[in-house]
């Protein structure tokens, strides 16, 4: 791979999805883009780069961008955040939204759906307390391909064994040979939409909870700041922001503060509600 091709493709990725690739990750470009090259009848990465220079075929650029995203996800990822959701966040919202009776949750990097479906199952388990409520879970991702998988809600035996408690598997899935499909009840609770976090978030509406987990790690500092600052504008005053285990707002955005005693959950810096409620 020559330096110019690396620069060309890595800049393309940065611009389109925010993904930052250092040169020691060049091998990733080759291994993930060779299949894309073949799909387009090209011999490999070098020809693919040539093709990008020649034509700006949107479909090709989308294929390249999607091939480079990391889509790994699992149900109840890291477990603790979802325990906190059930034990701290949900009780708080049940109390503080009792008159409005509405709840809006955004999974901003929903990938193959495990995260929004985990929340849907937790809300279903609490449905006695939510009768008459309008609950909306919006799952978005940059990749159409992964969203199609999410909508389908079909998972391998391996996928349903990472993090998903067996009683929830029995309750909310049906078996199709060696694959497992999540029930329509749960599927209907989530709306999936294509959305790029680099775009303007105006028009997304307000959210009580935003999950933005394991996606900021791929971005550079200015991009992280821009995403978080925009999210601050969408979050209800006493809303909750979840980041991934390796992510933080520290030194990136001063719009959020860690909720004391709740690792990984943030509230708006100028608001005391959520902080007080949980602390």
């Amino acid at each position: 791979m020559n330096v110019n091709d690396f620069e060309l493709i890595s800049q393309l990725l940065k611009k389109r999805s925010g993904l930052v690739l250092s040169e020691d990750k060049a091998y990733l470009l080759e291994s993930r883009l060779n299949p894309v090259a073949r799909k387009w009848g090209l011999s490999g990465f070098d020809e693919l780069a040539q093709q990008v220079r020649k034509s700006n075929d949107e479909k090709l650029l989308v294929d390249i961008t999607e091939a480079m995203t990391t889509n790994e996800s699992f149900f109840f990822r890291d477990q603790k955040p979802f325990d906190q959701f059930r034990d701290v966040v949900l009780p708080y919202l049940l109390e503080h939204r009792a008159t409005k009776k509405s709840l809006r949750i955004w999974c901003a990097a929903a990938s193959s759906g495990q995260e929004p479906y985990t929340l849907a199952m937790l809300l279903k388990e609490a449905q006695a307390k939510l009768s008459g409520w309008r609950v909306e879970i919006v799952g978005t991702d940059i990749s159409q391909e992964i969203l199609d998988k999410a909508k389908e809600g079909v998972y391998s035996q391996f996928e349903v064994q990472r993090g998903l408690p067996i009683n929830l598997l029995v309750k909310y899935f049906t078996q199709m040979e060696d694959r497992w499909q999540i029930s329509d009840d749960i599927r209907k609770m989530v709306t999936f939409k294509k959305f790029n976090l680099l775009e303007s978030m105006a028009g997304m509406g307000q959210f009580d909870v935003i999950f933005c987990r394991n996606v900021l790690i791929y971005f550079d500092q200015p991009t992280k700041s821009q995403v978080l600052d925009q999210m601050a504008g969408l979050l209800a005053n006493d809303g909750f922001l979840y980041l991934g285990g390796a992510e933080t707002v520290l030194g990136i955005s001063d719009r959020f503060l860690l909720i004391p005693g709740q690792r990984g959950i943030y509230g708006l810096a100028n608001e005391q509600h959520a902080v007080k409620a949980a602390g």
């Binding site: 699992f74 109840f76 477990q79 064994q161 990472r162 993090g163």
Partner: peptide, 16 residues
Amino acid sequence: IMKPFDSEIIESKFTQ
């Protein structure tokens, strides 16, 4: 746990 299993599945289930 449904076989085949690996260390990740065992760890995940034992954590749960």
